[in-house]
């Protein structure tokens, strides 16, 4: 029987939660026995090769590309999991949620104290994804089946959740494992 496939993506996040996936240490070998990785930065697969059992999403939605990827994940994955605080509540990127987008761009590219931009231009290549009006948690864009909080979500909680889901066991997280930081 073919192994189930999992996919991962980092949207508006810092890749910290992906570091946590790698942080399961030697258990990654065990994971490889249980699953194949499909689209993921870990193997650098850019496109889905087929249907996946589980999709792990790091980061919230800050731009149109994030939405596009997230919806693509929803289409291809049976179970979609928000991993980490950015996916769950926007976290640091969501600090811009009460600041008008124009101000954000100007602060980032023109007025910020450390900005060096002699041409005084705000990048606007057509290849650049457009920003959303604010940062959205993933579950406000698509249906999310499970949430694994943490900043980053720690390796243990990711491991426990994956094993439980892949072996069809109930997900029971010990107290010390639920952390929002």
């Amino acid at each position: 029987m073919a192994k189930p496939k999992i996919a991962t993506a980092s949207l508006a996040g810092c890749f910290g939660c992906h570091m946590s996936i790698l942080d399961i240490d030697e258990r990654i070998l065990k994971l490889i026995e249980l699953v194949d990785f499909d689209k993921s930065p870990i193997n650098d697969f850019k496109e889905f090769t087929g249907r996946c059992a589980i999709g792990l999403i790091e980061g919230g939605c800050a731009n149109e590309d994030n939405v596009h990827v997230l919806r693509d994940f929803r289409k291809h994955c049976d179970i979609l999991i928000s991993v980490g605080d950015c996916a769950i509540n926007g976290d640091i990127p969501a600090l811009r949620n009460n600041i008008p987008l124009k101000e954000c761009l100007e602060e980032a590219y023109l007025n910020g104290p450390s900005v060096y931009n002699p041409e005084k231009t705000i990048p606007n290549d057509k290849e650049l994804p457009l920003c959303l009006d604010r940062v959205y948690p993933c579950h406000e864009v698509v249906k999310i089946d499970y949430f694994l909080p943490g900043c980053p979500a720690n390796a243990e909680i990711i491991w426990q959740a994956l094993v439980a889901l892949l072996t069809n066991k109930p997900l029971e997280l010990p107290y010390e494992m639920i952390k929002y930081d």
């Binding site: 949620n97 997280l173 107290y175």
Partner: peptide, 20 residues
């Protein structure tokens, strides 16, 4: 935060208000 941990909340079920 501790109360949410104790009650086993992984994420709030309501939409965020993001107040200013």
């Amino acid at each position: 935060q501790a109360m949410a941990y104790r009650l086993g909340i992984l994420a709030p079920k309501y939409p965020y208000f993001y107040p200013d």
